[in-house]
Nucleic acid binder design. Sequence first.
DNA 1: GTGCTTGCAAACCCTTTGCAGTGAA
DNA 2: TTCACTGCAAAGGGTTTGCAAGCAC
Lengths: 147, 147
Amino acid sequence: MEDLPADIADNEMAQALRHAGYRLTQPRLAVLRVLEQSAEELSPLGIYERGRAIYDRLGLVTVYRTLEILDALGVARRVHIHGRCRGYARAEGDQHYLVCRRCGTITGFPCEGLGPLIVSVQERTGFTVDAHLLELTGLCPECQMAR
Amino acid sequence: MEDLPADIADNEMAQALRHAGYRLTQPRLAVLRVLEQSAEELSPLGIYERGRAIYDRLGLVTVYRTLEILDALGVARRVHIHGRCRGYARAEGDQHYLVCRRCGTITGFPCEGLGPLIVSVQERTGFTVDAHLLELTGLCPECQMAR
DNA sequence: GTGCTTGCAAACCCTTTGCAGTGAA
DNA sequence: TTCACTGCAAAGGGTTTGCAAGCAC
């Protein structure tokens, strides 16, 4: 692991991996780095292609396996556009995604104001709510200009 | 179309199809009926299997094509569990889904209280928000009992 | 040194496409 | 009668699995 900059092995996502008992391998760090450097959602194939520029022996299968781990750890998350799964992006804590449907840019926003809604739904339905998926889709400032 | 009960051809989903200029065929009505009768989300294959009990010449391909139309019309919607697309369910107007992660039961709840959040996000980011995906996941009353 | 991790290849499976026959309007 | 629609078969493409070699710890 000495041939990759230390800051990559020390970022938040890597810590989560290490903390969960996973080994910090070069392929995994390459995936982390790609997710970290990207402002858009990326498909596994896209991550694979960019990842090869960082670690050229990276395999597509490893990308899938790494994404599965990152998703389970809550470090990366699936992103949807029009209800269709379009790829992955890093999960920023308790944030949700705002996705530009034209260029794919992703912006996180804090999960606020959802609490009362959830409480009300729980009271009305008897369900216990333990997870929620909220994604907003629209146009980013640049794409609004574009047309 | 005389060999199917009139109430199926006259339901809300069928009206939407007809109104959009689509023909009300037996395969499409079978798909509608399956969606209407199910309280859970169903995969295309699941819809196909149930649909064959209603119209035995139904093809899987037609199920896919019909779901695509229904999705575009906002009559059916993709449902996710843990960020993963698990199938389709009828869309109830402006409602969102509450999914039981154990038995898959789906309950709709009205989209309320999201307005202020969206306005605030728009102001903060400069995005124009034109769609949102909100799904709550948890346990339904029966599954809470179960363990 | 140990055993988790990787990458290749191949299997898998879900989804889409081409096309000729069918049936709703 | 017309042309949208359907179903079959096949192609297509993304995802998963088996297994021997590799490497983090």
